[in-house]
C-alpha cells in the first residue's frame, strides 16, 4: 500500500468536499455534511447530538437515523433514504453506507464528475449484533474520524467484555446489590442490552435510555425487556438488577434510590487506567463504538483512497503516522466532541 503522494489534481481545483467554518461542504451539490452551525441543507451521518444538530433548513439521513433525530430535534423538515440508494443533489451523486457505529449510522459517499469522496462519520468494524455492519466504500479521498487513533487502543472481543460485565453483575446480584452501568443513551446502551440479554436478573433503564429504546423498538429492533425507572418505581422490587443510565445521572438524586450500588462505566476510554480512575467508578469496561487502532488501518486500506483527511481525535499523531506509511494524509478541524458523543464521552 505504499503510495508516494503527489496530490491529485482535484485538490488544486474545486474539491468535491471542502472544509468550512460551518462544517464539511459540497460546492457541486450545495449541501453540508454534519454541519455544526445552521445551514440550508444538511446530510447527517448519524443521530448523535454533535453530528445531528438543530436549526438546519432540510435534513437528509438514513431510514434508521431519522426517527431518533425526530425524537431529539422535534419538528424538522427531513427526508430519509435507504443504504446504498443513490440521490442526485445538484451536480453531486450521494449515497449512504453502513458505518457500524450505532443503529442507522452511515458513511456518506459523494461523487462529482467521477471523483469519489467518502465521509466516514463515526464508525467501527465488525458485527456487534445490533447495528448494520461497516462496509468499506472505494473512494479517492476518505475523511476518517480517529477518536482512538493511537496504538494503545486495541479492543478485546465483544463476548470477552460481555463476560466481564456479566461476572460483575452476577457478583453484585449475589450480594443483593444493584449494578449501575453508565452508557450513552443512543447506541452504547442498546449494544449493552444486547450483550447482556442473558444476564442474571432484570434490567432497569433511565428514561433517556428507554426513550431511545422505544424509538428503536418501533423500528423493529429486537431489544431485551427492560423496566423504565419512573419516580414511583420501587427499587427494592428489583433486587440485583442491572441499571443502565447515562453517566450524567450518576451522583444525582435519581441514582440515590439504588443505594449501595456498584458502579461501572462502558467506554473505549476505559482502556486507560488514568481515565478510569478519574471517573471514580468501581469498574470500567472497554466497550467502544469507534474503530480501534487496527480497525482504523483496515478501514482506510479497504477504501483504496490515496488522500486521507483525519478528524476528531488524535489527528496530528494519526496523520503523521499515515504519511509515514505512504498515504497522503492531513488534519481537518472539526467542532465535534463537545456534546454527548464528545471526545471522551460517548466513545
Amino acid at each position: 500500500m505504499r503510495r508516494a503522494g503527489p496530490m491529485i489534481g482535484g485538490m488544486a481545483q474545486a474539491q468535491v468536499l471542502t472544509f468550512t467554518d460551518r462544517g464539511i461542504y459540497c460546492p457541486a451539490g450545495d449541501f453540508f455534511i454534519d454541519p455544526w452551525r445552521p445551514v440550508d441543507r444538511a446530510l447527517i451521518t448519524h443521530a448523535h447530538a454533535d453530528h445531528a444538530r438543530w436549526g438546519h433548513g432540510r435534513y437528509l439521513a438514513t431510514h434508521g437515523s431519522l426517527p431518533v433525530m425526530r425524537h431529539r430535534l422535534g419538528d424538522i423538515t427531513a427526508e430519509s433514504v435507504g443504504y446504498d440508494e443513490t440521490r442526485r443533489i445538484g451536480d453531486a451523486t450521494v449515497s449512504f453506507h453502513p458505518a457500524g457505529h450505532v443503529p442507522g449510522s452511515a458513511q456518506i459517499r459523494v461523487e462529482v464528475a467521477g471523483e469519489v469522496w467518502v465521509v466516514s462519520g463515526d464508525y467501527k468494524l465488525g458485527p456487534d449484533g445490533l447495528c448494520e455492519e461497516f462496509e468499506p466504500v472505494r473512494c479517492h479521498s476518505f475523511i476518517s474520524e480517529c477518536t482512538f487513533g493511537l496504538p494503545v487502543f486495541r479492543w478485546h472481543p465483544q463476548n470477552q467484555v460481555a463476560g466481564e460485565i456479566l461476572d460483575w453483575w452476577q457478583s453484585n446480584a449475589s450480594q443483593g446489590r444493584f449494578s449501575l452501568l453508565g452508557a450513552y443513551s443512543l447506541g452504547k446502551a442498546q449494544r449493552l442490552l444486547h450483550m447482556l440479554r442473558d444476564g442474571p436478573g432484570p434490567i432497569l433503564t433511565h428514561g433517556a435510555v428507554e426513550n431511545v429504546n422505544e424509538v428503536l423498538r418501533a423500528q423493529g429492533l429486537a431489544l431485551p425487556d427492560t423496566v423504565r425507572v419512573t419516580p414511583d418505581l420501587d427499587a427494592k422490587a428489583h433486587p440485583g438488577a442491572l441499571v443502565i443510565a447515562p453517566p450524567s445521572a450518576f451522583g444525582s438524586s435519581w441514582a440515590r434510590r439504588f443505594a449501595q450500588a456498584s458502579t461501572g462505566f462502558a467506554s473505549g476510554w476505559m482502556q486507560l487506567r488514568g481515565v478510569r480512575r478519574r471517573r471514580a467508578m468501581d469498574r470500567g469496561f472497554v466497550v467502544s463504538d469507534h474503530a480501534d487502532w487496527p480497525e482504523l488501518h483496515r478501514a482506510i486500506k479497504e477504501t483504496g483512497a490515496e488522500n486521507i483527511y483525519v478528524t476528531h481525535g488524535y489527528t496530528d499523531i494519526f496523520a503523521r503516522h499515515l504519511n509515514e506509511i505512504g498515504y497522503n494524509a492531513r488534519v481537518v478541524p472539526t467542532e465535534f466532541g463537545t456534546d454527548e458523543d464528545g471526545a471522551e464521552d460517548a466513545a
Binding site: L150, P151, V152, L272, G274, Y314, I317
Partner: peptide, 12 residues
C-alpha cells in the same frame, strides 16, 4: 516517536 506520543497521552 509514535510510542513516545502515545506515552505522553497515556501518562504512564
Amino acid at each position: 516517536w509514535l510510542f513516545e506520543d502515545s506515552y505522553a497521552i497515556v501518562g504512564d
